[in-house]
C-alpha cells in the first residue's frame, strides 16, 4: 500500500520549480557548434547562398516597411521643394544638356572615325556597353564592409560581377544578387581590386581598396612616373569594367626609403554618398562568361585576367614590376612593404 503511493509519487519527485528543458550550458555548446559550422560552410563553400537569397526575398516586405518612413520624408521634401529652386535646376540642366549635346556630336564623329580606323587595321570594334539605371536603397548595415544596396535585382537581369558607375566614375561591382535588390561592393572595399591605367602616360596597374575610402596601387617601383593629381581610368583588359571610365585621382605619394615600392594613395572620383542614381553596366559579351554563383570568384577575376594579359602582351618595364604570384591571390594581399 505504502509502496504503491511511493510509486505514484515518484514521477513528481524531479524538481519542477524551474522548467528549462536542456540546461543553458548544453544549449550554448550546441548552438555555438552550429554557428561555427555554418560560418565555415558559408566562408568556404557556397551552399548557403541560395538560402540567403530566399530569405532576402522573404524579407522584402519587412524591408519595405522599414524603408517607408524615409521614403515619405523624401516625397514630402520633393513635394514642398520651392518653385524657384526647380526653375533654377531646370535652367542648369538644360544648359548642361546643351553642352553635352555639342560634345556628343564630336564624340559620334570620333567614334565613327575610330571604328573606321580599327576596321582598316583589322582590329576589334569596341562594344558599347548597355546599362541599367538603379537607385541606392540603403548603405550596407555592416560597418566592416563597404557596400551599398541598389533596388535592381535578378528580376531586372542584374548579374553578379557587373560593374557599377555613376556620372563621375566607377563605384564598384555587383557582388550579390537578390530577386529585387543587389549588393554593390565599392572599389574602396578591401576585397575588391580594379585594373587601372594612368590617363597621362597609359601606365597599367591594379588598384586595391584599402577599406577607408582610398585606393592603394602597390608593387610599383619608387621611381615610377606617377604624380599627385594624376587621373586613374579603367584599362578595360579585365573584361568587366569597360575601358576609359574614371576611377580615382592620386592624392598622396609616400616615399619610404626602406621599401623598394612607392606607396601611392588615391581617392575615388565617384560620389556614392551624394546622390542615389547609378548605372549598372552590362558585362562585355566578347569575354567568356563570369561565374554568377560565386561572388568571391568574381572579385578575383580582374586580377587573374590582368596577370595573363601582363605576361602575354606587356613589354613596358614599368607595369611588369608587379609580382605575379601575389597579384593572383588578392585574398592575402601583401602590403607593398613586404615584397615576397
Amino acid at each position: 500500500m505504502l509502496k504503491g503511493v511511493h510509486q505514484k509519487l515518484e514521477p513528481q519527485q524531479t524538481p519542477a520549480f524551474f522548467v528549462r528543458g536542456a540546461s543553458p550550458f548544453s544549449r550554448m555548446v550546441f548552438f555555438c557548434a552550429l554557428s561555427i559550422t555554418m560560418m565555415a560552410i558559408d566562408a568556404r563553400l557556397n551552399y548557403l547562398s541560395q538560402i540567403r537569397q530566399g530569405f532576402i526575398a522573404a524579407l522584402h516586405p519587412l524591408e519595405m516597411v522599414a524603408n517607408a518612413p524615409s521614403n515619405w520624408v523624401r516625397d514630402i521634401n520633393r513635394y514642398f521643394s520651392v518653385h524657384n529652386q526647380l526653375v533654377q535646376e531646370n535652367y542648369a540642366l538644360k544648359q548642361q544638356a546643351f553642352e553635352h549635346r555639342v560634345r556628343l556630336q564630336r564624340l559620334s564623329t570620333i567614334e565613327a572615325e575610330n571604328t573606321h580606323l580599327r576596321s582598316l587595321l583589322n582590329g576589334d570594334i569596341p562594344i558599347q556597353p548597355k546599362a541599367i539605371l538603379g537607385e541606392i536603397s540603403h548603405t550596407g548595415r555592416d560597418p566592416f564592409s563597404l557596400v551599398v544596396v541598389v533596388n535592381r535585382g535578378s528580376q531586372h537581369n542584374v548579374k553578379a560581377g557587373q560593374a557599377v558607375a555613376d556620372s563621375k566614375g566607377v563605384i564598384g561591382q555587383i557582388t550579390r544578387v537578390f530577386p529585387f535588390s543587389s549588393e554593390v561592393t565599392l572599389i574602396t572595399d578591401k576585397e575588391l581590386s580594379i585594373p587601372i591605367q594612368i590617363e597621362r602616360n597609359q601606365l597599367r596597374a591594379i588598384a586595391f581598396g584599402e577599406g577607408n575610402n582610398t585606393l592603394d596601387i602597390p608593387y610599383l617601383p619608387a621611381n615610377v612616373d606617377i604624380k599627385v593629381g594624376d587621373k586613374l581610368v579603367t584599362s578595360g583588359i579585365d573584361g568587366i569594367y569597360p575601358a576609359g571610365l574614371a576611377v580615382a585621382k592620386v592624392t598622396k605619394i609616400l616615399q619610404n626609403p626602406e621599401s623598394p615600392f612607392a606607396k601611392i594613395i588615391s581617392t575615388p572620383v565617384a560620389e556614392v554618398s551624394n546622390h542615389l542614381q547609378l548605372l549598372i553596366l552590362e558585362l562585355p559579351q566578347a569575354k567568356e562568361s563570369v561565374p554568377t554563383t560565386k561572388p568571391v570568384e568574381v572579385k578575383n577575376k580582374p586580377v587573374i585576367e590582368k596577370k595573363s594579359a601582363d605576361t602575354s602582351a606587356d613589354t613596358s618595364s614599368n607595369s611588369s614590376a608587379q609580382p605575379s604570384s601575389q597579384t593572383a591571390t588578392p585574398k592575402n594581399k601583401a602590403k607593398p612593404n613586404a615584397p615576397n
Binding site: 548552438f31 555555438c32 552550429l34 554557428s35 561555427i36 559550422t37 555554418m38 560560418m39 560552410i41 558559408d42 566562408a43 548557403l48 540567403r52 530569405f55 532576402i56 524579407l59 550596407g140 548595415r141 555592416d142 566592416f144 564592409s145 557596400v147 550579390r176 549588393e183
Partner: peptide, 13 residues
C-alpha cells in the same frame, strides 16, 4: 546575419 549580409553564423555565435 541574414539581414546585414555578414558571414552566416557570426552574430548567431
Amino acid at each position: 546575419d541574414l539581414a546585414t549580409g555578414s558571414l552566416l553564423g557570426q552574430h548567431a555565435l
